[in-house]
Write a protein that binds this DNA or RNA. Structure first.
Length: 953
RNA sequence: GCCGUGGUGGCGGAAUGGUAGACGCUGCGGACUCAAAAUCCGCUUCUCGCAAGGGAGUGAGGGUUCAAGUCCCUCCCACGGCACCA
């Protein structure tokens, strides 16, 4: 029966009891248990917990509690990431020190967190603003500086006028605004403290492959963000007025296609390229060039990034370059389609094989050379087709192979550059055609489920229809049909056809094609002069390299001209200096000559001075601190100056999960022993917005520490799950201005912490999706818990077998669902069980087991009811109940009955019933019998415990 | 444009290739009540039918299969990442 309860009566009570007993404290590593490190992103203490925090912390708590009950020692720590601009801005507004503001927020939020009733390991907490914490942040920085991972660099940086500080690339949104203030970012050239994350770019990409449990989409997002391109750097000699110039005589370009070097018909420099300033006197049209540079500077990032815009550029008069491959003198341009920040800021333009260069070349009437021949399919004679072959321009080739034995077909189509694979696949090396084709298509297209059929005439027959995605109704095909005879291809016919959109050739149509005409070979290729071949092929017009495979040619051509094979990355080094107050001071001092030195360990923490007016002016506030200045001179000597920038807060959060492990250690940030005990993080729940920020930074940080021998592991996280967002009841993102904010404190007061937590878990799978907070939905969960509260009225001495069976099935399902983060279906199973209990009563033993499996979801009410059954110790130190495998196995089963594939009824039969028994059972069903009487049974498909399908006519 | 994820009732969402829509919400009907709320019982994919019962149905179209939400192909749409990256 439904029974109201007052959550306020016992939720607080148990929270205090747990705290007092240290129920969730982790203590020392208990090696009798397996360890599990569950991590959630530590919050910024904004001063108020929002529903997103609940979703982030309380739902993973189900997982944590389950693992604890399964006998693991689970570390689930919580802390505060408390440096940063919001605190500083709030402090300015209130005219207090951000430390004071932040500390009071932490205290307040600590209470709010307690009201969740989550099993945090509070004895392992830390806060990034504690000097004992940032001492180590600083020490790590000094180690990085000593080992050339941190450096003072000069570069183009993102300046946020709203925040009065520089921010990192990752913190600039797509539209060029600041992720925090929303202001338009300005590009400034200034000295910057940088971390060499690019030195770790390869490791950051390659090691993703070792993270087998990570969701692929997260890994892919990181790969794209890092953006590795494999290519070569090639030097071009520059000539001024036709003569080889003495200064800056080379320009280095980066290219991914060194194999096309012979087709490079001009060079393009980014407008920011330093060559321009250095050679202004030699450039005859300097005025025009300077104007273009100026315009390019003023163009916003978005404008420049808009690749639909027509290409612009200016030729550098009196400057030419020499193509190192063929000695040709080629012109040099500047154009804003070349980016200063990528590669070397200069490119060799190959308009024959690059669409952007092609567009530019057409506009400026520059020569276009083709130096790579698209390579398609081999002919019977074994020669690859070349441009010179007399065929019409086509988009694709389709090869159909008919097996005359059973009149089935192999139909394969390849678009343009996909045909290359057929040649390298060794079709003509005596390998079975079908098998080779199957393998090639699988490799080339990624379509895996080709059907391979064996039959008596042919070793392997591949029954497969394939159309390449982009081939649409405008494409023209050549169809060539073969028959296979004793493994020999015999051409039957060839025909040309424009296929209508998404129309398949039916087998009947195919037959008519066979009669069209005879053909000698199976091929088509592109002779369209508009076609820019960007793929691989055979090298041509390149002297000694002609005929070489383009992939192989990359290396030898680079070698020949003295270039270097190298990678380049989209990722930039991480700029970490901030011109604001509320952060970790960069522990660097400058000697009177201006040389940077680290603050040695004995002077750490290098504390943040307090005697500072931190109103933002653009000048770093620390520069105004007398105390810091005196401290520096006192320790290092007269004339020494402190660094006055503070660190990006993403630095603080890049290693917090290590500090939790050893949060009171004065000697080390975390001892190797602790690391060995607890790392890696087994399960990291977090927000999708951190995929290319915190998640990448902290992986880098771990690798940098690892390189210096300071961490045991080079990857911090074994498994990562990105959760979604909780939206307002109207389906929009919660925001004060929309008035759709759901306040968790209010909800907790209204329906209790258990209900809020369970509702959040019930909305849908934890991974990925966003859900609106539905006030009706949460009432449903409350109703469920009230009925649970009333279950004791249904206690009986002996319960039915059916009830026991369902209990054990539910124990099994809840456990497996939790480990798959399907909390929603686990809760659904609990509800079904509860309904059964209410209808059919339950024994005390089952009641207690039910409370145990409910405990991870609703820790308070289960604890309360647990004690009401006479238990004196906490339910949260109990083990998760085992299910009895013999009870979970069904003896009888209800299966669907289909007649001709249509569902027509159900029968309930023994699990191990035979087909005859099943059929008889169906015949025993009046309705089914009536239907069966109307047909003649031709075939029966019976899958035990699944289906009975009767086919007849 | 490229890469990734997804598309199922009025809503959130369930379904190892085997009874589509579990569970919850909403809505409707009934019980209780002077009444309302709460609670309890029943119904709730659409459609034809008084009913018994029939038909359709998982973004669209095709394919494989005894059987497709699930596998394959093409297309459409939404969301996320990257994007003049050489």
């Amino acid at each position: 029966m439904h029974k109201r309860y007052n959550h306020q009566e016992f939720e607080k009570k148990w929270q205090e009891k747990w705290k007092q007993d240290g129920t969730y404290n982790i203590g020392a590593r208990d090696t009798s248990k397996e360890k599990e490190y569950v991590l959630v992103e530590l919050p910024y203490p904004s001063g108020n917990l929002h529903i997103g925090h609940w979703y982030a912390f309380a739902v993973p708590d189900i997982y944590v509690r389950y693992k604890r009950m399964m006998g693991k020692q689970v570390l689930y720590p919580m802390g505060f990431d408390a440096f940063g601009l919001p605190a500083e801005n709030a402090a300015i507004k209130r005219n207090i020190n951000p430390r004071v503001w932040t500390k009071s927020n932490i205290e307040y939020m600590r209470n709010q967190l307690d009201s969740m009733g989550v099993a945090f390991s509070w004895d392992k907490t830390t806060s990034t603003i504690d000097p004992e914490y940032y001492k180590w942040t600083q020490w790590m920085f000094t180690q990085f500086f000593e080992n050339n991972i941190a450096y003072r660099g000069e570069g183009v940086v993102n300046w946020c006028p709203g925040c009065h500080t520089v921010i990192a690339n990752e913190q600039v949104l797509l539209d060029g605004t600041c992720e925090r203030s929303g202001d338009m970012i300005e590009k400034k050239r200034m000295p910057q403290w940088m971390l060499r994350i690019t030195d770790f770019a390869d490791a950051l990409i390659d090691d993703l492959d070792t993270l087998g449990d990570w969701p692929e989409h997260i890994k892919e997002a990181q790969r794209q963000w890092i953006g590795r391109s494999e290519g070569a750097e090639i030097d071009f000699k520059l000539n001024v007025n036709g003569a080889s110039s003495t200064v800056n005589s080379t320009i280095t370009v980066f290219t991914t296609r060194p194999d096309t070097l012979f087709g490079a018909t001009y060079l393009v420099l980014a407008p920011e390229h330093p060559f321009l300033e250095q050679n202004r006197n030699s450039i005859e049209n300097w005025k025009e060039v300077a104007t273009y540079v100026q315009t390019a500077k003023q163009k916003s990032e978005i404008e420049r990034g808009d690749n639909t815009k027509e290409k612009t550029g200016v030729k550098l008069e009196a400057i030419t370059a020499t193509n190192p491959a063929n000695g040709e003198e080629i012109p040099v341009y500047i154009a804003d389609y070349v980016l200063a920040g990528y590669g070397t800021g200069a490119i060799m333009a190959v308009p024959g094989h690059d669409e952007r260069d092609n567009e530019f070349a057409k506009k400026f009437r520059l020569p276009i050379k083709r130096v790579v021949e698209p390579l398609f399919i081999q002919t019977d004679g074994g020669n690859a087709f070349r441009e010179t072959d007399p065929v019409e321009p086509r988009d694709a080739v389709c090869v159909v192979v008919r097996n005359p034995a059973d009149n089935t077909y192999l139909a394969l189509e390849w678009k343009k550059d996909q045909m290359h694979g057929l040649v390298t696949g060794g079709i003509d090396d005596g390998e079975d055609l079908i098998e080779a084709a199957r393998r090639e298509v699988t490799e080339e297209t990624g379509y895996k489920n080709l059907k391979v059929v064996r039959d008596q005439n042919f070793s392997i027959h591949c029954k497969f229809w394939h159309r390449v995605k982009e081939v649409n109704r405008h494409a023209r095909f050549t169809y060539v049909f073969f028959e296979l005879e004793n493994n020999e291809r015999k051409v039957v016919s060839e025909s040309e056809q424009a296929l209508h959109d998404s129309q398949w050739i039916s087998e009947n149509d195919l037959d008519s094609f066979f009669t069209v005409f005879e053909a000698k070979f199976a091929v088509t290729l592109l002779k369209n002069p508009e076609y820019i071949h960007t793929g691989n092929g055979l090298i041509s017009h390149s002297g000694e390299f002609d005929g070489m495979d383009s992939e192989a040619a990359k290396i030898v051509i680079t070698e020949k001209v003295g270039g270097r094979m190298t990678n380049t990355y989209r990722l930039r080094d991480w700029s970490i200096g901030r011109q604001r107050y509320w952060g970790v001071p960069i522990p660097i001092v400058y000697d009177p000559q201006g040389k940077a030195h680290i603050v040695p360990k004995e002077h750490l923490p290098w504390t943040l001075p307090e005697d500072v007016d931190f109103t933002p002016t653009g000048e770093p506030p620390l520069a105004k601190s007398q105390e810091l200045k005196e401290r520096t001179e006192h320790i290092f000597g007269a004339g020494w100056l402190p660094e006055v920038e503070t660190m990006d807060t993403f630095v603080d959060s890049s290693w917090y999960f290590l500090r939790y492990l050893d949060n009171h250690n004065d000697e080390e940030f975390a001892s190797k022993v602790r690391q060995q005990e607890w790392m890696q993080v087994d399960m990291y729940f977090g927000g999708a917005e951190h995929t290319t920020m915190h998640l990448l930074y902290s992986r880098f940080w771990q690798k940098a520490l690892h390189k210096l021998g300071l961490t045991v592991h080079s990857e911090p996280y074994k498994m990562r799950i990105n959760r979604g967002l909780i939206l307002g009841p109207d389906g929009n993102k919660m925001s004060k201005s929309k008035g759709n904010v759901v306040d968790p404190d209010e909800q907790v007061k209204l329906v209790g912490a258990d209900t809020v937590k369970m509702y959040l878990a019930f909305m849908g799978p934890y991974q990925g999706a966003n859900y609106p907070f539905d006030l009706g939905g949460i009432a449903g969960i409350r109703r469920f818990l009230e009925r649970v509260y009333g279950l004791e009225e249904h206690l009986v001495e002996v319960e039915s077998k059916e009830t026991t069976v369902l209990l054990h099935k539910t124990i099994k399902k809840v456990g497996s669902d939790i480990t798959e983060f399907k909390f929603n279906t686990a809760i659904s199973a609990l509800m079904i069980l509860m309904n059964q209990f209410e209808k059919n009563n339950l024994s005390m033993q089952s009641y207690q087991k039910f409370l145990l499996i409910l405990a991870p979801f609703a820790p308070h009410i289960s604890e309360e009811l647990w004690h009401l059954t006479g238990q004196s110790s906490s339910i949260h130190i109990e083990n998760f109940p085992n299910y009895d495998p013999s009870l979970v196995k069904d003896e009888v089963v209800t299966i669907g009955v289909q007649i001709n594939g249509k569902h027509r009824g159900e029968i309930t039969i023994a699990v191990n019933a035979t087909e005859t028994e099943a059929l008889n059972s169906a015949k025993g069903n009046a309705e089914l019998a009536a239907r069966l009487a109307r047909i003649v049974i031709k075939k029966v498909v019976y899958v035990p415990s699944r289906i009975l399908n009767i086919i007849g006519e």
